[in-house]
Computed example of a mutant assay.
Amino acid sequence: MKNLVAYITSGYPEKSFTIDLALALGESGVDTLELGVAFSDPVADGPLIEKANHKALELGFKFSHLLEISREVAPKIDTLWMGYFNSFYQQNMDKLIPLAKEIGVNGLIIPDVPHEEALLYKELFHTNEVANISFVAPTDSPQRIQTIVKDAQKFIYMVAYTGITGSGVAEDLLPFLATIKQYTQTPVYVGFGVNEKTAKNKVKGADGVIVGSAFINILLQEKLSYQEKIQKCSHLAKMIKEEINS
């Protein structure tokens, strides 16, 4: 069974909605939830997620809201925090990682921290049994891939192309996947540009997919009611989970 990871922006359009959506996604085939931490300059994200980040901040999103959402959600669905390093660093990593463990959050995804810098926190994550998700990209050499995935935890986030999230750029990922799998038994999930149209192709040779912009596109449709947004996201999740396992 191949896994589906869903990204949603915490607190957009509001905290209670995020909780309801997260729980609905968990009932609709999503195996792991990425709770996005709104940031003013999300450099690795496409225009849709960037827009949702800005809207969440305009609506008053605070880190404390992420904690409140996580306390409701993490006991019921495998939960990760996805955000940029400054958001976490400001909370004091020595206190934050144990708190994540206490709440039940199982890992962090921090796209702007290079592997070498992430090693500074390796013991902190390990001691608290919280994963720091590793990234690999097509531009990485086999030697660098071997270095990055050596101690990879939970899953490896494989960047599906060199760019930002939300694009449907097509490429043959199988040779790249084969290279990664030479060096690790850790599951490899494909992210960036994955939606209901591309998921079946992108998951070939991988263990799962990570979907963000496709869900955020629904959340940004202001004509839809909260319930309609949840219904559409749930339907999308079911569709993608079926596609990647058919």
Results as ranks from 00 to 15, higher is better:
Lys202Ala: 07
Tyr183Ser: 09
Asn195Ile: 05
Gly212Met: 01
Val190Asn: 08
Lys181Val: 05
Val211Asp: 07
Leu220His: 09
Ala206Leu: 10
Ser213Asn: 05
Glu222Gly: 08
Glu222Ile: 10
Gln182Leu: 07
Lys223Ser: 05
Asn217Arg: 10
Gly212Thr: 02
Ile218Val: 02
Thr184Ile: 07
Thr186Ile: 04
Lys181Tyr: 07
Ala199Thr: 13
Thr186Tyr: 01
Gly205Arg: 14
Val188Glu: 07
Gly191Glu: 12
Thr186Asp: 00
Tyr183Ile: 12
Ser213Phe: 06
Gly208Leu: 11
Val211Trp: 06
Gln185Glu: 15
Val190Trp: 12
Lys200Pro: 09
Gly191His: 10
Gln185Asn: 13
Glu228Trp: 06
Ser213Gln: 05
Glu196Leu: 03
Val194Tyr: 01
Tyr189Arg: 10
Glu196Ile: 05
Gln227Met: 09
Asp207Val: 14
Asp207Lys: 10
Glu228Arg: 08
Lys200Glu: 14
Asn195Gln: 05
Tyr183Leu: 06
Val190Leu: 07
Ser213Ala: 05
Asn217Ile: 04
Gln185Phe: 07
Val188Ile: 07
Asn201Pro: 03
Asn195Arg: 07
Asn201Glu: 15
Gly208Lys: 12
Lys200Asp: 11
Ser213Ile: 03
Ala199Asp: 13
Gln227His: 11
Lys202Leu: 13
Ile218Leu: 02
Phe215Cys: 06
Val211Asn: 03
Leu219Asp: 00
Val211Pro: 02
Gly193Asp: 09
